[in-house]
């Protein structure tokens, strides 16, 4: 119960964080650690690919909120892609789609970090 696995990979200057499973109060520390590790490596272009994320609660949103200022202060950003319907509903309901760039697929998201070609 409450399982979460997180894959982190580098796509050029972008760190792609790919959570699989559920992010709730039980698993959020694992998610926070993965994000903090990326930031500690001074990689501030972070893409959350949510294709395997079936659920995120406010605890998970808090983890993202807790890092966004640090990341943006250093010229980076946290963006999202491949949100499932219920995950998108959470972000949208809270107005977070105004705070974070949301892309349908990863290639567009990576391009957004790199700027216009």
């Amino acid at each position: 119960m409450g399982d979460l696995s997180i894959l982190v990979r580098e796509e050029g200057p972008v760190s792609v964080v790919e959570p699989k499973g559920f992010i709730n109060a039980h698993t959020v520390r694992q998610f926070e650690c993965a994000l903090e590790e990326v930031v500690q490596k001074e990689r501030y272009a972070i893409l959350l690919n949510c294709r395997h994320l079936s659920y995120i609660s406010s605890a998970g949103l808090g983890a993202i909120m807790g890092l966004i200022e640090t990341v943006r202060d250093r010229g980076g950003d946290i963006q999202l892609c491949n949100l499932q319907e219920n995950v998108y509903a959470i972000f949208d309901t809270l107005g977070f789609t105004q705070l974070y760039k949301v892309h349908p697929e990863e290639p567009e998201a990576l391009q957004s970090f790199l700027g216009p070609s």
């Binding site: 119960m1 409450g2 559920f22 709730n24 109060a25 039980h26 659920y55």
Partner: peptide, 8 residues
């Protein structure tokens, strides 16, 4: 919190 997934 380990029981959250069960109740949800």
């Amino acid at each position: 919190t380990r029981y959250l997934n069960l109740v949800t």
